[in-house]
Every structure is written in structure tokens, then in C-alpha cells.
Design a protein around this nucleic acid. Structure first.
Lengths: 190, 190
DNA sequence: ATCGTTTTTGAACAAAGTGTTTGTTATTAA
DNA sequence: TTAATAACAAACACTTTGTTCAAAAACGAT
């Protein structure tokens, strides 16, 4: 990739990230982004078709980074959401989230980011679906449960960010276990 | 209130509702609303400062309607989220939601409505907080739990709407019970 | 039915944003 | 060095926003 392209993309991403900490996504204009990134209007539209695509690309790379070693760990060990081993994975994920708080806060914390949340949940559905214990003796459908678990995680992260991230990742993992474990294990002894 | 005002407000609300079923909130313009409602530009801004305020007012009246008898029932009977009596309340709420599906679908179903969801969760926090069983022997903080419960409900409704509302309110109440009951009752026997 | 008040209205407005085009200038990789 | 590629500024037509103003219409009360 051309060095100029790299620089342009980096500048746009950085500017976008910066502005996201100041105002909500929908209030941000392309004009603002290119002003802050110090690139020409034409250049922006050369790289991204719309503002939405910029967000999508940013979320994608962020997720890939956050879940990179979680997803690779999945192959070596055999984790499951329904036993204690999941706590490690969850803790890991939250540590990554905390490391990226500068990127996240702007997108997630305030009232904005419905698209980000959508992407987030979607991504989590994929991640969690491989950890779901297989049990057909449930009183709720599989996809409802998966949606519930992913939603609970996103919900928790949102709550955490809004409250100033006072809890440690280990603590959060415990909370998460406390609200998901009882549901997942209840019918396993069938 | 002046008859003209009533008519104007009704027309705007109706138009807004209608357009919400066609596109997401952020794509809707004031221009579109006043065209459809057939009112003057000036009139719109006489009634609502911004498009956001229109949404907020609409959500408010919708919630008040949906939860009206739920909130009044609260005073007569003594419900709690942690026992079987809650199922009635939940079922009731979902029936109301289904009756208002025309209003809800547009706002909630598609990718839009982050503000609506925010209002919804906020409202639910108030509703649920009075049903929360008091137990200080929990491994998770009270406000985390409340946030989790409200979030789970909103999450479920979203899942339900997206899936075409195939499940009956009773069934949904059972699902909700299945994912909240185990958490709320686990430490009650202290 | 009339009268003073309130509401609605259209037209026009500046300001800001969008996405595209065009020709020019820099930068790059070879 | 050179040919390709990327960035650029300027200008574009277009849409949206929120405000102002004076005139017309609808209203409630007498």
C-alpha cells in the first residue's frame, strides 16, 4: 500500500477517534473529520464511500485487535461458557477493552454508537456461539439464549464504561459469571 | 388546549410514526415530517424545538400508555421479580407492546432507535427497581443487577420484534423468567 | 355574530453539510 | 528519470436546518 494512503488513512482514523470522544457519532460531520485530519475533501471520499463505512472499518479493526488472542486461545484450550474456565476468557477480553478505552469511550460511553453496539453484538454472537454448551433440554431457544448472553456482555461493558471503569476485569468477569452461569448450568445435569 | 394545536400535534405524531416504519430515525428529516403531516415549517418549530424532542415526547406518551396499568397494579398487589407473580406483570407489558407494535416496530426493530432504547431502558429501570427483591447478600452490586435485568428485557423485546413476534407474550414471559429468576433467587435463601 | 387573541402559514433567509467534478500539483515505486 | 498514482483546492448543485416576518385563518369568549 502506498505510503501516502497509509498516512491518509491513519490521519482520518486518528481524527475520527479524537472527535468521537467529544461528541456523538451522528453529530460528527465529514467536514470536521477532514479538517482535523488535515486532508482534502476529495481524498476522504477516495478512501471511504460514507461516514458509516469509516465507522464500520474502524470497528472491524478494533474488534479484530481486541479478540485476536481470545480467538486463537479458543483453538488451543477447550473453553465453555458454562464452566469456570470461561472466566479467563472474559477477563482477557475486558483487559483488552480497557487497554483500548481511548478508542472505546467515545463510541460506546455516551448516548451514541448504536451502530457500534450493533457491530459489537454481532461480533460477540460469533465469538460466544462457539463457547455455548450444547444442551437441547432448555426451556428457551438457542438463539434467544445466545442473544441474551451477548446482550448481557455488551450491557455490562456499557454499564462499566459509564460508571468510570471502577471495577477490575476480574471483578467484571465474576459479575458476568454470576448472571450467566446459573442460566447455562441449570439444565445441564440432564 | 387549542383545537388547532391538538390537530397539528396529532398530524405530526402520525406522520412521524408513519415514516418511522419506512426508514430509520436518523434518516428522517424535518422536511419529510412536515410534508407528510401537511403543516408549515414554522408550525413544527412552534411545537418542537428539535426532531429529538419530538421523539422524546412520543416515547414518553407511549411508555405512559404501555405501563399505565402495570404501574397501577403495582400498588394493589405486591409483586416481586423474584417469584412467580412477576410473570403476570411481564406478560401484561408484552401484550401492551404487541398492541402498540405499529408504533414500536419502526422505532425499535431496525438498526435505528438508539435514543428510544435509551429512554426505554431508563423507564424500565424505574419500573423494575420497585420490584427488585431486597437482598444484600449478593455477589453483584444492586445497580449492576438492575441494569442487567432492564437490559435483558429490552434485549428480549428487540429479539422478539426482529424475529417477527412469533412467540406469545406468555411464552416470552417464560423466557424472561428463565434468564432472570435463577439470578434473583439464588442468594435469597440466606 | 363579533372581536381580540392565538395559531398557522408561505416565502425568503443565511448557514452548514453532502457528494461530485475538474484540472493541477506532489509523491511514489520502478 | 519517468510514468503512475494519490492528494489537492476550488467550485459545483443540492439538501437540510432553523429563523424571521407579515398576512391569513381559526379559535374561544362574550
Amino acid at each position: 500500500m502506498d505510503r501516502r494512503q497509509q498516512k491518509t488513512r491513519a490521519a482520518i482514523f486518528a481524527a475520527f477517534n479524537e472527535i468521537l470522544t467529544e461528541k456523538s457519532y451522528h453529530q460528527i460531520t465529514v467536514q470536521e473529520i477532514i479538517d482535523r485530519a488535515n486532508v482534502g475533501r476529495t481524498t476522504f471520499y477516495d478512501h471511504f464511500e460514507t461516514k458509516d463505512e469509516l465507522l464500520r472499518e474502524m470497528c472491524d479493526s478494533l474488534f479484530r485487535h481486541i479478540f485476536s488472542d481470545v480467538l486463537s486461545a479458543e483453538s488451543t484450550h477447550d473453553f465453555s461458557l458454562s464452566d469456570g474456565t470461561s472466566r479467563m476468557v472474559i477477563t482477557h477480553m475486558i483487559y483488552h477493552l480497557r487497554d483500548n478505552r481511548k478508542n472505546l469511550l467515545g463510541i460506546l460511553a455516551c448516548e451514541s454508537g448504536e451502530m457500534f453496539l450493533q457491530f459489537f453484538r454481532q461480533y460477540l454472537n460469533n465469538v460466544f456461539s462457539s463457547y455455548m454448551p450444547t444442551s437441547n433440554a432448555r426451556e428457551v431457544p438457542e438463539d434467544f439464549l445466545l442473544n441474551h448472553i451477548s446482550g448481557s456482555f455488551v450491557n455490562m461493558v456499557q454499564w462499566w464504561l459509564k460508571g468510570g471503569m471502577k471495577e477490575s476485569p476480574e471483578q467484571l468477569a465474576t459479575y458476568f459469571e454470576a448472571v450467566t452461569q446459573p442460566i447455562l448450568t441449570q439444565k445441564e445435569a440432564e
